[in-house]
Design a protein around this nucleic acid. Structure first.
Lengths: 150, 150
DNA sequence: CCGAAATAGATGCGACTACCATCTATTACG
DNA sequence: CGTAATAGATGGTAGTCGCATCTATTTCGG
């Protein structure tokens, strides 16, 4: 599962989607887009979704529709059919007050996670730099008998 | 699934674990700890894991052990049994060069994701502030016939 | 010297989720 | 009229998460 080069997006730098499943950030982005737009529907959201996405992973249309349905099940959005204009009928969603609250909770959580990640990244950079300096006889502080496994 | 108050950690503020499954950040933290420590084993890592964790979610012992096994399967760490000292035998892990690379890839990815989240949080704060000001007759720009669903 | 607690690692299982492929329908357009 | 675009939805395999539970060894109190 952790392939270094991304099997899907092919780019030259490590890709989110090669790092396991970080795909699950559809929900907060959908909430934010609905907040900004006032109301919208799946097919329309699909466009802007990529721009606001939290990872560079391609966003599944299926995931988007399911997310919307779940959000409705949980009372974060409500929907109505829009049959008026051009094209097939659309299911138009808008935030409920609960949805607004949920969005702000997401912000709180992601703020926290974001800072943790920042700290993590700094830690890694530091560890890498340090280890690359003291490349001497590695003073392994162990006094236990080690036997290679399988 | 998206309960506002955390069912597990009970705290008063929104908790990562109530936001769906963001639990999957065990791998990078384990890699970092191994990098810092040089080598270690599951039970030992379990202690420091919580401090370096990227979310406030409690880290499952099971998840930790499984992560270590997977890391080995993918060539990011190697292990050997340590039967010398006190206590039951330990499976001692250390990073491979591939593991080092993988850690740095995680740093790259999480750096990216962290920045995206930061942007997201700012966007939410802005949207919330703005929407709370123009609480007038909402000028909904729609000209389609809407019918309530279910 | 017995039994409880601590240390250490591991797995079975139900529930949930991801991704892919595929499906239905309606409208637009050449 | 047929194809593309618009719009929404689902089935199914594979994988993962978290809980409960399991084995074993060692330490330590009494």
């Amino acid at each position: 599962m952790p392939q270094r080069l991304c099997p899907r997006h092919g780019g030259n730098q490590p890709c989110t989607c090669a790092m396991g499943n970080l795909y699950r950030f559809v929900e907060p982005v959908v909430l934010l887009l609905l907040k900004k737009k006032g109301h919208s529907y799946g097919y329309d959201l699909a466009g802007d979704l990529q721009k606001h996405a939290l990872t560079d992973a391609e966003i599944e249309r299926a995931a988007l529709y399911r997310t919307l349905r779940n959000l409705e099940l949980n009372g974060n959005v409500v929907s109505e059919w829009d049959t008026g204009g051009a094209g097939p009928a659309r299911r138009v969603y808008r935030l409920t007050p609960e949805g607004e609250r949920h969005l702000e909770e997401w912000a709180t959580v992601l703020d926290h996670v974001s800072k943790s990640m920042e700290r993590f990244v700094k830690d890694v950079r530091k560890a890498v730099k340090k280890k690359n300096k003291d490349r001497g006889p590695s003073a392994e502080p162990s006094s236990r008998a080690l036997t290679a496994s399988h």
